[in-house]
Amino acid sequence: MKFIIAAMALATSSLALAYHCPNEMKAIDAKLATNPTLSAADMGKVKDLRAEGEKLHKAGKHDESLKALDSAKKLLGI
């Protein structure tokens, strides 16, 4: 019984992370649409991290996706 509860909790948390990734990508996209003042190098990093986050999300690697997206958000100041 404990195993079933633990498995259900894990599955639920994975789904929560899966739905969180698109919101993070939307926040990054919204900030990029405002043409933030960043160096060309930082803008390239943000775009690369955003793309990597989406790729990892699509691959089901939500923890890794969120790490990449969080890094992009930090560079953008959000």
Rank of each mutant, 00 (worst) to 15 (best):
M1F: 13
M1D: 06
M1P: 08
K2G: 12
K2A: 15
F3C: 05
F3A: 15
F3D: 13
I4W: 06
I5M: 04
A6T: 08
A7Q: 05
A7P: 02
A7W: 05
A7S: 09
M8V: 13
A9P: 00
A9R: 11
L10R: 12
T12D: 00
T12V: 13
T12I: 11
T12S: 08
T12A: 12
T12Y: 04
S13C: 01
S13Q: 08
S13P: 00
S13D: 03
S13G: 00
S14W: 01
S14M: 11
L15S: 00
L15N: 03
L15H: 03
L17C: 01
A18C: 10
Y19L: 09
H20Q: 14
H20G: 00
H20F: 06
C21H: 00
C21D: 03
P22F: 12
P22R: 10
N23S: 12
N23A: 07
N23Q: 13
E24S: 13
K26P: 01
K26S: 05
K26A: 12
A27E: 07
A27D: 03
A27M: 14
I28P: 01
A30Y: 04
A30S: 12
A30T: 14
K31E: 04
A33L: 14
A33F: 01
A33S: 15
T34P: 11
T34E: 15
N35Q: 14
N35D: 15
T37S: 15
L38N: 07
L38C: 06
S39E: 03
S39W: 04
S39Q: 03
A40F: 04
A41M: 10
A41I: 10
A41K: 14
A41R: 09
A41F: 11
A41Q: 14
A41S: 10
D42A: 07
D42F: 06
M43R: 14
M43I: 02
G44P: 04
G44E: 10
G44D: 10
K45F: 11
K45V: 05
V46E: 12
V46Q: 07
V46D: 12
V46H: 08
K47A: 07
D48G: 09
L49V: 14
R50C: 04
A51Q: 15
A51K: 15
A51D: 08
E52H: 13
E52M: 14
E52P: 01
G53A: 07
G53C: 10
E54D: 12
E54T: 11
K55T: 06
L56Q: 13
L56Y: 02
H57K: 12
H57S: 15
H57C: 09
K58G: 00
A59E: 15
G60A: 04
K61S: 08
K61Y: 00
K61V: 00
K61L: 05
H62F: 14
D63W: 08
D63Y: 09
D63C: 02
E64I: 03
L66P: 02
L66W: 02
L66N: 11
L66T: 07
K67R: 14
K67S: 11
A68I: 10
L69V: 08
D70Y: 03
D70E: 14
D70P: 00
S71P: 02
A72R: 12
K73C: 05
K74I: 08
K74G: 02
L76K: 04
L76T: 04
L76S: 07
L76Y: 06
L76M: 08
G77M: 09
G77P: 10
I78A: 06
I78H: 06
